[in-house]
Design a protein around this nucleic acid. Sequence first.
DNA 1: TACATTCATCGTCGTTCGACGATTAATGAT
DNA 2: ATCATTAATCGTCGAACGACGATGAATGTA
Lengths: 109, 109
Amino acid sequence: MSTQARQEPCEVVDPAGDITLPDDDTLAAMMKALAHPARVRIIRVLDERQACVTGDVVIELGLAQSTVSEHLRILRQTGLIQGEIEGPRTRYCISATGLATLKAGIAAL
Amino acid sequence: MSTQARQEPCEVVDPAGDITLPDDDTLAAMMKALAHPARVRIIRVLDERQACVTGDVVIELGLAQSTVSEHLRILRQTGLIQGEIEGPRTRYCISATGLATLKAGIAAL
DNA sequence: TACATTCATCGTCGTTCGACGATTAATGAT
DNA sequence: ATCATTAATCGTCGAACGACGATGAATGTA
């Protein structure tokens, strides 16, 4: 039931080095990924608990499992989070570089 | 009122003082407003040319007038830009506070 | 071998978005 | 007055979104 979060951090490699500014389309896509309250909340949840699995997010958001899985997919495909399979479950965490790219793109507006 | 609109800055009042962090819904709404390449471009255009009227943006984007007017409405309603009527045309400019709120909200993620 | 657990994917359905042309309102010019 | 210009609004239509339940694949356990 609960997550026994241990093991190494989800973010295996992410030097957070040189961040290239995204172009309009990429920036708009990242914005679109966060253009939904549920996905903003997911980012906050992943920030609080360093990392957690899909089931935890489902409980936290109170939405259907398939709905949450879809939101996670969108965030993953835009590079804002990353998930690694861990047995029968998937552990998600924030992508430092992805989020940094978004922040840089916004800040440059 | 208004009228005798000169070419003074569009941003009449905008101290850019205390910026309150937006909640999830507000932040998501601002993201949604910029979750489209055309609207990101509008922000850039308004940034380059301090301010310009609808027709200028129409030419710059190459979209139908009604389409651009709709994009401008969305940005205006979320408080990211502001427009003031100037005779038969409307002059738009970036809202410093609106954009600052967005930047603060993202940076706090 | 099952069987349960976890999560991604699929199918559906109603809502919203985004584009456009047409229309309307307001202003300026003739 | 009439006409032209500018921009917001309206109506439409196809595409995408967002929610859900159902299904399926992968893993762990008895």
